[in-house]
Design a protein around this nucleic acid. Structure first.
Lengths: 206, 206
DNA sequence: GTCTATAAATAGATAGAC
DNA sequence: GTCTATCTATTTATAGAC
């Protein structure tokens, strides 16, 4: 069945399935070995395809990586976006901490993908860091300063407050191996939320 | 001048200089690209040597990496080792935070070397993580629990307290690019120490 | 000790059959 | 769409001259 004369055909089911499989495989491999440490062959095998077959869907290794990174960047900033200037300040900030911790729990690979990229100097997302990311953070810092001025939360450095939320929550995804090695049998996330809630409550309450 | 008949000759000045240069170059390259993303050629060039010449000093790429990692592991745990069970608890813990932050400021490459290794699953130092590292941390957690029982600091989860010190301080080294991109002109370390001191004071005081 | 040359393996990407 | 075969470049490591 042909629908119209449009030259751009819609994706077949098999194409969709393969693209999804490739993205999932690429996330797994890139998040573990970083861009340079990963090979197209690894990704193809992980996706259940041959190397040339994978390259039928994506033009190059870099293309897969870039698409993955840019697609995930939006999702990654959602939790911060959701922080509401009109909500109850301490609740809003602790809610943000919770959402970030949930991301570490449910999407550790995505976290490690970004961690690898940034530790290695962020060659692919430098622009976004000092562009859209900085802009979003700066906006939220205005809100935090307002909360401080209104006496709703303690007087802390807004940017460093946000850095501390990032580092504390992402640590459980990025350094998962270390955390689990040190904890032994205890599950990290069993007590992380309680600890972080306690920490930010004590830090922020006036 | 020959001293005795010992077959193992001491290193010449030139050998010492080259070994030092190789270690420095390897630290720079490995900390930026991770083990798999780094090449011997890069390290050799950075050290001002040819590739075969570098391999005259070290048998393989892995040998350089392993030596580097194991040598630095001790140094890396010094700040925690120095924490004194008989000192004033809040001071001791905040002192530990300060020393870790100083490491991030003065040895960011070492921090990123470990970060890369651990994010990528710690294939080379798994044993140390659940061995000597876990042991040291567990010992210090006993001390922390004692301080809590004595009412000297607030009741917090000892392991997560240590994780939070690691993540908050190392973040400034590992995610340096992101931190600077977001802060703009402001130097991260200008306010990090004040912020972290404030954070841990509020968290720990009874 | 340091170099050139090179072996051997691997990696990214393409050609062309089916 | 997927495969085999292959090209080209890169990478680890070694051989052997100087």
């Amino acid at each position: 069945m042909s629908f119209g004369s449009k030259p751009e055909r819609p994706e077949t089911r098999i194409q969709q399935r393969n693209r999804v499989a490739i993205r999932a495989a690429a996330l797994k491999v890139f998040s573990t070995f970083g861009y340079r440490g990963s090979t197209v062959d690894q990704i193809a095998t992980e996706a259940g395809l041959s190397k040339p077959n994978l390259l039928y869907y994506f033009p190059s290794k870099e293309a897969i990586y870039r698409e993955l990174l840019e697609t995930l960047l939006e999702t990654w900033l959602d939790p911060l976006n959701e922080m509401d200037a009109d909500g109850e300040p301490v609740e809003e900030l602790i809610g943000y901490v919770r959402r970030k911790l949930d991301m570490s729990r449910n999407f550790p690979r995505e976290s490690r993908l970004f961690a690898n990229e940034i530790i290695q100097g962020a060659p692919q997302i430098e622009t976004e860091l000092s562009g859209s990311l900085k802009q979003l953070v700066d906006e939220k810092c205005v809100v935090i300063r307002k909360w401080i001025a209104e006496g709703k939360i303690a007087d802390v450095h807004p940017h460093h407050l946000i850095f501390s939320i990032w580092s504390l929550t992402q640590h459980y995804a990025d350094f998962d191996v270390q955390v689990r090695a040190v904890l032994g049998k205890e599950d990290p996330f069993d007590n992380a939320e309680t600890y972080l809630t306690q920490l930010f409550t004590r830090l922020l309450r006036v």
